[in-house]
Design a protein around this nucleic acid. Structure first.
Length: 440
RNA sequence: GGCGCGGUGGCGGAGUGGCUACGCAGCGGCCUGCAAAGCCGUGUAGACCGGUUCGAUUCCGGUCCGCGCCUCCA
Protein backbone atom coordinates (compact mmCIF):
# COMPACT_ATOMS: atom_id res chain seq x y z
CA UNK A 1 0.00 0.00 0.00
CA UNK A 2 1.20 3.44 -0.84
CA UNK A 3 0.02 6.83 0.26
CA UNK A 4 -2.53 8.54 -1.92
CA UNK A 5 -3.93 12.02 -1.42
CA UNK A 6 -6.66 14.03 -3.06
CA UNK A 7 -4.92 16.84 -4.89
CA UNK A 8 -6.94 20.01 -5.42
CA UNK A 9 -4.73 20.87 -8.38
CA UNK A 10 -6.00 17.85 -10.31
CA UNK A 11 -9.27 17.30 -8.40
CA UNK A 12 -8.29 13.67 -8.16
CA UNK A 13 -6.91 11.22 -5.69
CA UNK A 14 -3.28 10.61 -6.65
CA UNK A 15 -0.45 8.41 -5.54
CA UNK A 16 1.89 10.47 -3.41
CA UNK A 17 5.32 10.64 -5.00
CA UNK A 18 7.63 12.80 -2.93
CA UNK A 19 9.98 15.34 -4.46
CA UNK A 20 12.68 13.94 -2.19
CA UNK A 21 11.88 10.60 -0.54
CA UNK A 22 14.49 11.33 2.11
CA UNK A 23 12.78 14.49 3.26
CA UNK A 24 9.06 15.27 3.07
CA UNK A 25 8.07 18.92 3.39
CA UNK A 26 4.59 20.11 4.35
CA UNK A 27 3.16 23.56 4.93
CA UNK A 28 -0.24 24.16 6.51
CA UNK A 29 -1.94 27.51 6.95
CA UNK A 30 -2.27 28.26 10.62
CA UNK A 31 -4.42 30.66 12.59
CA UNK A 32 -4.80 34.39 12.41
CA UNK A 33 -4.45 35.26 16.05
CA UNK A 34 -7.19 37.73 16.84
CA UNK A 35 -9.74 35.51 18.58
CA UNK A 36 -10.17 32.12 20.21
CA UNK A 37 -9.93 29.19 17.81
CA UNK A 38 -13.29 27.73 16.94
CA UNK A 39 -14.02 24.16 16.07
CA UNK A 40 -13.73 24.95 12.36
CA UNK A 41 -10.16 26.08 12.95
CA UNK A 42 -9.51 22.88 14.84
CA UNK A 43 -10.39 20.58 11.95
CA UNK A 44 -7.27 21.27 9.83
CA UNK A 45 -5.10 21.29 12.94
CA UNK A 46 -6.22 17.75 13.79
CA UNK A 47 -6.41 16.44 10.22
CA UNK A 48 -2.93 17.56 9.25
CA UNK A 49 -1.63 16.29 12.56
CA UNK A 50 -2.76 12.84 11.49
CA UNK A 51 -1.12 13.29 8.10
CA UNK A 52 2.07 14.43 9.81
CA UNK A 53 2.08 11.34 12.03
CA UNK A 54 1.54 9.14 8.99
CA UNK A 55 4.29 10.77 6.96
CA UNK A 56 6.67 10.35 9.87
CA UNK A 57 6.33 6.58 9.81
CA UNK A 58 6.45 6.35 6.02
CA UNK A 59 9.49 8.54 5.45
CA UNK A 60 12.77 9.10 7.24
CA UNK A 61 12.40 12.84 7.68
CA UNK A 62 9.42 15.18 7.63
CA UNK A 63 9.39 18.93 8.10
CA UNK A 64 6.01 20.34 9.00
CA UNK A 65 5.55 24.11 9.01
CA UNK A 66 2.44 25.86 10.30
CA UNK A 67 2.45 29.62 10.37
CA UNK A 68 0.94 32.09 12.77
CA UNK A 69 -0.56 35.15 11.14
CA UNK A 70 0.01 38.01 13.51
CA UNK A 71 -0.39 40.95 11.17
CA UNK A 72 -3.84 41.27 9.71
CA UNK A 73 -6.62 43.82 9.50
CA UNK A 74 -8.88 41.71 11.69
CA UNK A 75 -6.30 41.98 14.43
CA UNK A 76 -6.13 45.73 13.92
CA UNK A 77 -9.90 45.93 14.06
CA UNK A 78 -9.97 43.94 17.27
CA UNK A 79 -7.40 46.23 18.82
CA UNK A 80 -9.35 49.31 17.85
CA UNK A 81 -12.50 47.76 19.25
CA UNK A 82 -11.16 46.65 22.62
CA UNK A 83 -8.41 49.19 23.13
CA UNK A 84 -5.95 46.38 23.69
CA UNK A 85 -2.42 46.51 22.38
CA UNK A 86 -1.95 44.55 19.14
CA UNK A 87 1.04 42.72 20.54
CA UNK A 88 -0.98 41.65 23.56
CA UNK A 89 -3.83 40.37 21.45
CA UNK A 90 -1.60 38.29 19.20
CA UNK A 91 0.48 36.88 22.05
CA UNK A 92 -2.46 35.95 24.24
CA UNK A 93 -4.37 34.43 21.32
CA UNK A 94 -1.36 32.47 20.09
CA UNK A 95 -0.81 31.08 23.59
CA UNK A 96 -4.46 30.06 23.78
CA UNK A 97 -4.19 28.42 20.37
CA UNK A 98 -1.23 26.38 21.58
CA UNK A 99 -3.14 25.30 24.66
CA UNK A 100 -6.08 24.24 22.50
CA UNK A 101 -3.85 22.37 20.05
CA UNK A 102 -2.22 20.55 22.93
CA UNK A 103 -5.57 19.60 24.44
CA UNK A 104 -6.46 18.07 21.07
CA UNK A 105 -3.36 15.87 21.31
CA UNK A 106 -1.64 17.37 18.31
CA UNK A 107 2.08 17.20 17.80
CA UNK A 108 3.92 20.50 17.47
CA UNK A 109 4.95 21.43 13.94
CA UNK A 110 8.68 21.55 13.34
CA UNK A 111 8.48 25.27 12.63
CA UNK A 112 5.82 27.75 13.56
CA UNK A 113 6.93 30.99 11.94
CA UNK A 114 5.20 34.28 12.62
CA UNK A 115 4.53 36.76 9.87
CA UNK A 116 5.96 39.72 11.78
CA UNK A 117 9.28 37.91 12.11
CA UNK A 118 9.54 37.61 8.33
CA UNK A 119 8.83 41.09 7.01
CA UNK A 120 12.36 41.20 5.58
CA UNK A 121 11.81 38.05 3.53
CA UNK A 122 8.51 39.40 2.29
CA UNK A 123 10.05 42.69 1.19
CA UNK A 124 12.71 40.81 -0.75
CA UNK A 125 10.01 38.80 -2.50
CA UNK A 126 8.06 41.95 -3.40
CA UNK A 127 11.16 43.60 -4.87
CA UNK A 128 11.84 40.42 -6.82
CA UNK A 129 8.31 40.31 -8.23
CA UNK A 130 8.55 43.96 -9.28
CA UNK A 131 11.91 43.32 -10.92
CA UNK A 132 10.51 40.36 -12.82
CA UNK A 133 7.57 42.37 -14.09
CA UNK A 134 4.92 40.60 -12.04
CA UNK A 135 4.09 43.46 -9.69
CA UNK A 136 3.62 47.21 -9.88
CA UNK A 137 3.55 50.15 -7.49
CA UNK A 138 0.57 52.45 -7.36
CA UNK A 139 -0.48 54.99 -4.73
CA UNK A 140 1.68 53.51 -2.00
CA UNK A 141 0.45 49.98 -2.78
CA UNK A 142 2.32 47.19 -4.44
CA UNK A 143 0.04 44.94 -6.45
CA UNK A 144 0.52 41.59 -8.10
CA UNK A 145 -0.19 41.88 -11.81
CA UNK A 146 -2.40 38.90 -12.56
CA UNK A 147 -2.22 39.67 -16.28
CA UNK A 148 1.51 39.02 -16.19
CA UNK A 149 1.06 35.31 -15.63
CA UNK A 150 -1.19 33.12 -17.70
CA UNK A 151 -1.40 30.27 -15.23
CA UNK A 152 -3.26 32.39 -12.70
CA UNK A 153 -6.46 30.63 -11.62
CA UNK A 154 -5.32 27.06 -12.18
CA UNK A 155 -5.82 25.88 -8.62
CA UNK A 156 -9.28 27.28 -8.03
CA UNK A 157 -10.57 26.84 -11.57
CA UNK A 158 -11.42 30.51 -11.77
CA UNK A 159 -10.24 32.57 -14.66
CA UNK A 160 -9.75 36.29 -14.37
CA UNK A 161 -13.00 37.10 -16.15
CA UNK A 162 -14.99 35.04 -13.70
CA UNK A 163 -13.28 36.64 -10.78
CA UNK A 164 -14.09 40.06 -12.10
CA UNK A 165 -17.66 39.10 -12.91
CA UNK A 166 -18.22 37.67 -9.47
CA UNK A 167 -16.50 40.40 -7.49
CA UNK A 168 -18.71 41.39 -4.60
CA UNK A 169 -16.44 44.14 -3.50
CA UNK A 170 -15.87 47.42 -5.24
CA UNK A 171 -12.66 47.32 -7.19
CA UNK A 172 -10.03 49.55 -5.67
CA UNK A 173 -9.11 52.40 -8.03
CA UNK A 174 -5.39 51.71 -7.82
CA UNK A 175 -5.74 48.25 -9.38
CA UNK A 176 -4.89 47.84 -13.06
CA UNK A 177 -7.07 44.75 -13.13
CA UNK A 178 -9.86 43.80 -10.77
CA UNK A 179 -8.18 40.47 -10.09
CA UNK A 180 -4.90 42.03 -8.96
CA UNK A 181 -4.16 41.67 -5.29
CA UNK A 182 -2.13 43.51 -2.71
CA UNK A 183 1.44 42.60 -1.82
CA UNK A 184 2.09 45.70 0.28
CA UNK A 185 -0.21 48.41 1.49
CA UNK A 186 0.30 51.67 3.36
CA UNK A 187 -0.24 51.88 7.11
CA UNK A 188 -1.41 54.91 8.98
CA UNK A 189 -2.59 55.85 12.43
CA UNK A 190 -2.16 53.04 14.89
CA UNK A 191 -1.83 50.39 12.23
CA UNK A 192 1.29 48.27 12.45
CA UNK A 193 3.79 49.05 9.73
CA UNK A 194 7.36 48.79 8.59
CA UNK A 195 9.51 51.05 6.49
CA UNK A 196 10.05 49.92 2.93
CA UNK A 197 11.03 51.14 -0.51
CA UNK A 198 7.32 51.67 -1.15
CA UNK A 199 6.66 53.64 2.00
CA UNK A 200 5.61 52.82 5.54
CA UNK A 201 3.22 49.90 5.34
CA UNK A 202 2.42 46.25 5.89
CA UNK A 203 2.27 43.10 3.78
CA UNK A 204 -0.80 41.69 2.10
CA UNK A 205 -2.23 38.54 3.61
CA UNK A 206 -1.05 35.99 1.06
CA UNK A 207 2.56 37.02 1.00
CA UNK A 208 3.65 35.62 4.35
CA UNK A 209 2.93 32.03 3.35
CA UNK A 210 4.91 32.40 0.14
CA UNK A 211 7.86 33.94 1.95
CA UNK A 212 7.86 31.60 4.92
CA UNK A 213 7.27 28.36 3.04
CA UNK A 214 10.22 29.29 0.84
CA UNK A 215 12.41 30.01 3.83
CA UNK A 216 11.66 26.79 5.72
CA UNK A 217 10.85 24.37 2.92
CA UNK A 218 12.29 25.85 -0.26
CA UNK A 219 10.62 27.11 -3.44
CA UNK A 220 9.12 23.68 -4.18
CA UNK A 221 7.76 21.33 -1.55
CA UNK A 222 5.46 18.33 -1.27
CA UNK A 223 2.24 19.23 0.48
CA UNK A 224 0.37 22.43 1.17
CA UNK A 225 -2.70 22.15 3.32
CA UNK A 226 -5.52 24.20 4.71
CA UNK A 227 -9.27 24.68 4.71
CA UNK A 228 -11.26 24.53 1.50
CA UNK A 229 -12.14 28.18 1.79
CA UNK A 230 -8.50 29.08 1.35
CA UNK A 231 -8.33 27.71 -2.17
CA UNK A 232 -9.39 31.05 -3.49
CA UNK A 233 -8.00 33.59 -3.19
CA UNK A 234 -5.37 32.72 -0.62
CA UNK A 235 -3.72 29.67 -2.11
CA UNK A 236 -4.25 30.81 -5.68
CA UNK A 237 -2.36 33.97 -4.85
CA UNK A 238 0.36 32.16 -2.96
CA UNK A 239 1.04 30.06 -6.01
CA UNK A 240 1.19 33.13 -8.24
CA UNK A 241 3.63 34.93 -5.96
CA UNK A 242 5.87 31.96 -5.31
CA UNK A 243 6.06 30.57 -8.80
CA UNK A 244 6.56 33.95 -10.45
CA UNK A 245 9.24 34.89 -7.97
CA UNK A 246 11.06 31.56 -7.97
CA UNK A 247 10.39 30.74 -11.63
CA UNK A 248 9.35 27.20 -10.78
CA UNK A 249 6.85 24.84 -12.35
CA UNK A 250 5.17 24.15 -9.05
CA UNK A 251 4.97 25.59 -5.56
CA UNK A 252 3.54 22.60 -3.71
CA UNK A 253 3.10 19.33 -5.54
CA UNK A 254 -0.03 18.30 -3.63
CA UNK A 255 -2.66 20.71 -2.36
CA UNK A 256 -4.78 19.16 0.34
CA UNK A 257 -7.91 20.89 1.60
CA UNK A 258 -10.27 19.92 4.37
CA UNK A 259 -14.02 20.43 4.07
CA UNK A 260 -16.19 22.91 5.84
CA UNK A 261 -17.88 22.51 9.16
CA UNK A 262 -21.38 23.31 10.30
CA UNK A 263 -22.49 23.41 13.90
CA UNK A 264 -25.68 21.76 15.09
CA UNK A 265 -27.10 21.61 11.58
CA UNK A 266 -26.54 25.27 10.78
CA UNK A 267 -23.66 27.04 9.24
CA UNK A 268 -21.53 28.54 11.92
CA UNK A 269 -22.15 32.17 12.45
CA UNK A 270 -21.61 34.49 15.33
CA UNK A 271 -25.03 36.05 14.96
CA UNK A 272 -26.72 32.66 15.38
CA UNK A 273 -24.59 31.99 18.42
CA UNK A 274 -23.71 28.50 17.24
CA UNK A 275 -20.03 29.25 17.24
CA UNK A 276 -18.22 26.73 19.40
CA UNK A 277 -14.75 27.71 20.44
CA UNK A 278 -12.38 24.90 21.29
CA UNK A 279 -11.87 26.61 24.61
CA UNK A 280 -15.51 26.39 25.64
CA UNK A 281 -15.91 22.82 24.40
CA UNK A 282 -12.93 21.82 26.51
CA UNK A 283 -14.77 22.94 29.61
CA UNK A 284 -17.43 20.36 28.83
CA UNK A 285 -15.58 17.53 27.10
CA UNK A 286 -12.13 15.95 27.08
CA UNK A 287 -9.99 17.18 24.19
CA UNK A 288 -9.55 13.61 23.10
CA UNK A 289 -13.30 13.23 22.56
CA UNK A 290 -13.31 16.37 20.42
CA UNK A 291 -10.39 14.99 18.44
CA UNK A 292 -12.16 11.69 17.84
CA UNK A 293 -15.39 13.46 16.91
CA UNK A 294 -13.47 15.39 14.24
CA UNK A 295 -11.75 12.27 12.93
CA UNK A 296 -14.97 10.29 12.65
CA UNK A 297 -15.73 12.18 9.46
CA UNK A 298 -13.43 11.97 6.47
CA UNK A 299 -11.53 15.25 6.19
CA UNK A 300 -12.88 16.26 2.79
CA UNK A 301 -16.48 15.58 3.71
CA UNK A 302 -18.62 18.43 4.92
CA UNK A 303 -19.23 17.90 8.61
CA UNK A 304 -22.00 18.83 10.98
CA UNK A 305 -20.29 19.25 14.30
CA UNK A 306 -22.55 18.64 17.28
CA UNK A 307 -22.16 18.24 21.02
CA UNK A 308 -24.09 14.97 20.70
CA UNK A 309 -21.33 13.85 18.35
CA UNK A 310 -18.64 14.60 20.93
CA UNK A 311 -20.66 12.75 23.57
CA UNK A 312 -20.83 9.72 21.29
CA UNK A 313 -17.10 9.91 20.66
CA UNK A 314 -16.54 9.99 24.39
CA UNK A 315 -18.54 6.79 24.81
CA UNK A 316 -16.39 5.06 22.23
CA UNK A 317 -13.31 6.21 24.11
CA UNK A 318 -14.80 4.95 27.38
CA UNK A 319 -15.19 1.51 25.88
CA UNK A 320 -11.68 1.49 24.47
CA UNK A 321 -10.17 2.69 27.72
CA UNK A 322 -11.78 -0.27 29.48
CA UNK A 323 -10.38 -2.63 26.89
CA UNK A 324 -6.82 -1.37 27.05
CA UNK A 325 -6.48 -1.54 30.82
CA UNK A 326 -3.21 -3.34 31.33
CA UNK A 327 -2.33 -3.41 27.64
CA UNK A 328 0.95 -2.24 26.20
CA UNK A 329 1.11 -0.92 22.68
CA UNK A 330 2.32 -3.38 20.09
CA UNK A 331 3.22 -2.53 16.53
CA UNK A 332 0.76 -0.29 14.74
CA UNK A 333 -1.85 -2.51 13.05
CA UNK A 334 -1.51 -2.54 9.27
CA UNK A 335 -5.25 -1.99 8.82
CA UNK A 336 -4.97 1.37 10.50
CA UNK A 337 -1.98 2.46 8.43
CA UNK A 338 -3.60 1.20 5.22
CA UNK A 339 -6.78 3.18 5.90
CA UNK A 340 -4.80 6.34 6.53
CA UNK A 341 -2.69 5.82 3.44
CA UNK A 342 -5.90 5.90 1.44
CA UNK A 343 -6.33 9.67 1.46
CA UNK A 344 -6.34 9.88 5.26
CA UNK A 345 -9.43 7.73 5.67
CA UNK A 346 -9.79 8.21 9.41
CA UNK A 347 -13.34 6.75 9.67
CA UNK A 348 -12.00 3.54 8.15
CA UNK A 349 -9.04 3.59 10.50
CA UNK A 350 -11.39 4.01 13.44
CA UNK A 351 -13.53 1.12 12.20
CA UNK A 352 -10.35 -0.97 12.09
CA UNK A 353 -9.72 -0.02 15.70
CA UNK A 354 -13.19 -1.21 16.67
CA UNK A 355 -12.40 -4.52 15.07
CA UNK A 356 -9.29 -4.95 17.19
CA UNK A 357 -10.60 -4.37 20.68
CA UNK A 358 -11.85 -7.86 21.47
CA UNK A 359 -8.87 -9.96 20.61
CA UNK A 360 -5.90 -7.70 20.76
CA UNK A 361 -5.93 -4.77 23.16
CA UNK A 362 -2.22 -4.24 22.52
CA UNK A 363 -2.95 -3.63 18.86
CA UNK A 364 -5.93 -1.44 19.69
CA UNK A 365 -3.74 0.68 21.92
CA UNK A 366 -1.05 0.95 19.27
CA UNK A 367 -3.50 1.89 16.54
CA UNK A 368 -5.26 4.42 18.72
CA UNK A 369 -1.97 5.96 19.83
CA UNK A 370 -1.08 6.34 16.20
CA UNK A 371 -4.19 8.47 15.76
CA UNK A 372 -3.33 10.48 18.86
CA UNK A 373 -5.90 8.68 21.00
CA UNK A 374 -5.86 6.60 24.20
CA UNK A 375 -2.71 8.31 25.39
CA UNK A 376 -3.88 8.56 28.98
CA UNK A 377 -3.88 6.01 31.72
CA UNK A 378 -7.35 4.40 31.92
CA UNK A 379 -7.63 5.33 35.58
CA UNK A 380 -6.75 8.92 34.81
CA UNK A 381 -9.30 8.95 31.99
CA UNK A 382 -12.14 7.67 34.13
CA UNK A 383 -11.35 9.50 37.33
CA UNK A 384 -9.79 12.70 36.13
CA UNK A 385 -12.71 14.02 34.12
CA UNK A 386 -15.75 15.76 35.50
CA UNK A 387 -16.21 18.83 37.64
CA UNK A 388 -14.55 17.26 40.64
CA UNK A 389 -16.61 18.96 43.36
CA UNK A 390 -16.30 15.65 45.16
CA UNK A 391 -12.77 14.60 46.00
CA UNK A 392 -11.51 11.05 45.91
CA UNK A 393 -11.36 10.68 49.69
CA UNK A 394 -15.02 11.66 49.98
CA UNK A 395 -15.95 9.16 47.28
CA UNK A 396 -13.98 6.40 48.98
CA UNK A 397 -15.68 7.18 52.29
CA UNK A 398 -19.12 6.91 50.69
CA UNK A 399 -18.17 3.66 49.02
CA UNK A 400 -17.07 2.24 52.37
CA UNK A 401 -20.35 3.34 53.90
CA UNK A 402 -22.22 1.68 51.06
CA UNK A 403 -20.18 -1.51 51.37
CA UNK A 404 -21.29 -1.73 54.99
CA UNK A 405 -24.92 -1.20 53.99
CA UNK A 406 -24.61 -3.93 51.40
CA UNK A 407 -23.02 -6.28 53.89
CA UNK A 408 -26.00 -5.58 56.16
CA UNK A 409 -28.31 -6.24 53.19
CA UNK A 410 -29.66 -2.72 53.60
CA UNK A 411 -30.02 -2.23 49.86
CA UNK A 412 -32.22 0.83 50.19
CA UNK A 413 -29.41 2.66 51.97
CA UNK A 414 -26.90 1.24 49.52
CA UNK A 415 -28.87 2.48 46.52
CA UNK A 416 -29.36 5.87 48.14
CA UNK A 417 -25.61 6.35 48.31
CA UNK A 418 -25.11 5.18 44.75
CA UNK A 419 -27.82 7.55 43.49
CA UNK A 420 -26.33 10.43 45.44
CA UNK A 421 -22.95 9.78 43.83
CA UNK A 422 -24.51 9.45 40.42
CA UNK A 423 -26.03 12.87 40.92
CA UNK A 424 -22.50 14.18 41.34
CA UNK A 425 -21.46 12.44 38.13
CA UNK A 426 -19.81 9.46 39.81
CA UNK A 427 -20.76 5.99 38.59
CA UNK A 428 -20.17 2.96 40.80
CA UNK A 429 -19.50 -0.49 39.48
CA UNK A 430 -19.59 -3.59 41.66
CA UNK A 431 -17.53 -6.40 40.31
CA UNK A 432 -15.87 -9.45 41.81
CA UNK A 433 -16.38 -8.25 45.33
CA UNK A 434 -14.79 -4.87 44.59
CA UNK A 435 -16.52 -1.57 44.01
CA UNK A 436 -14.81 0.77 41.55
CA UNK A 437 -15.89 4.23 40.49
CA UNK A 438 -15.53 6.53 37.53
CA UNK A 439 -16.73 9.96 36.56
CA UNK A 440 -19.40 10.06 33.93
C1' G B 1 -24.83 34.77 -12.56
C1' G B 2 -20.00 31.63 -12.49
C1' C B 3 -17.27 27.53 -10.10
C1' G B 4 -17.29 23.42 -6.64
C1' C B 5 -18.95 19.78 -2.81
C1' G B 6 -22.60 16.67 -0.69
C1' G B 7 -27.48 13.80 -0.01
C1' U B 8 -26.53 6.02 2.99
C1' G B 9 -30.55 2.55 8.28
C1' G B 10 -33.30 6.28 14.71
C1' C B 11 -28.32 9.01 14.80
C1' G B 12 -22.95 9.29 13.27
C1' G B 13 -20.36 7.33 9.11
C1' A B 14 -17.02 4.20 5.33
C1' G B 15 -15.95 0.85 1.54
C1' U B 16 -17.99 -1.66 -2.55
C1' G B 17 -21.03 -3.45 -9.58
C1' G B 18 -23.33 -9.16 -6.73
C1' C B 19 -21.24 -11.38 -0.30
C1' U B 20 -22.41 -8.66 7.67
C1' A B 21 -18.99 -2.19 7.14
C1' C B 22 -18.18 -0.09 11.74
C1' G B 23 -19.86 2.81 15.93
C1' C B 24 -23.80 5.07 19.08
C1' A B 25 -28.75 4.39 20.51
C1' G B 26 -32.97 0.62 20.69
C1' C B 27 -34.97 -4.28 21.67
C1' G B 28 -34.47 -9.61 23.84
C1' G B 29 -31.33 -12.67 26.90
C1' C B 30 -27.06 -13.96 30.30
C1' C B 31 -24.62 -11.85 34.44
C1' U B 32 -25.94 -8.59 39.03
C1' G B 33 -29.35 -7.96 45.59
C1' C B 34 -30.62 -3.99 41.96
C1' A B 35 -27.54 -1.38 38.73
C1' A B 36 -23.10 -0.34 35.87
C1' A B 37 -19.64 -2.74 32.84
C1' G B 38 -19.17 -7.04 29.93
C1' C B 39 -21.02 -11.06 26.86
C1' C B 40 -24.71 -13.36 23.33
C1' G B 41 -28.63 -12.37 19.96
C1' U B 42 -31.63 -8.86 16.97
C1' G B 43 -34.22 -4.98 13.65
C1' U B 44 -33.58 -0.68 10.53
C1' A B 45 -30.38 1.86 4.52
C1' G B 46 -28.65 4.09 0.16
C1' A B 47 -33.21 11.66 -1.87
C1' C B 48 -36.20 11.09 -6.52
C1' C B 49 -36.75 9.65 -11.88
C1' G B 50 -34.66 7.36 -16.01
C1' G B 51 -30.45 4.64 -18.47
C1' U B 52 -26.28 0.95 -18.91
C1' U B 53 -25.89 -4.22 -16.89
C1' C B 54 -27.55 -11.00 -15.88
C1' G B 55 -27.26 -7.73 -11.51
C1' A B 56 -26.38 -0.73 -9.03
C1' U B 57 -26.21 2.05 -2.86
C1' U B 58 -21.78 1.73 -6.11
C1' C B 59 -21.30 3.66 -13.30
C1' C B 60 -24.09 7.51 -16.72
C1' G B 61 -27.99 11.41 -17.41
C1' G B 62 -31.79 14.44 -15.33
C1' U B 63 -34.79 16.44 -11.10
C1' C B 64 -35.16 18.06 -6.13
C1' C B 65 -32.79 19.45 -1.56
C1' G B 66 -28.51 21.12 1.53
C1' C B 67 -23.69 23.50 1.77
C1' G B 68 -19.30 26.24 0.19
C1' C B 69 -16.21 29.72 -2.78
C1' C B 70 -16.27 34.05 -6.24
C1' U B 71 -10.23 39.67 -2.85
C1' C B 72 -8.21 38.91 2.24
C1' C B 73 -13.01 33.50 6.58
C1' A B 74 -10.03 26.83 8.39
Amino acid sequence: MTLSLHNTLTRKKQTFTPLDAEHIRMYVCGPTVYDLAHIGNARPVVVFDVLYRLLKVLYPKVTYVRNITDVDDKINARAAETGEDIRTITQVTAAQFHADAKALNTLDPDFEPRATDHIGEMKIMIADLIAKGHAYVKEGHVLFDTNSWDEYGLLSGHNRDEIIAGARVEVAPYKKDAADFVLWKPSSGGEPGWDSDWGFGRPGWHLECSAMSNKYLGPEFDIHGGGQDLIFPHHENEIAQSRCSHQTDIMAKYWVHNGYLMAEGEKMSKSLGNFYTVHELLEEFPGEAIRLALLKTHYRQPMDFTKAGIAEAKKELDRWYRMIDGASASETPTDVIAALEDDINTPQAIAALHGLGDGSPDALLAGANFLGLLEQDPEQWFRGAGDGDLDEAAIDALIAERDQARADKDFAASDRIRDALLEKGVVLEDSSGQTTWRRK
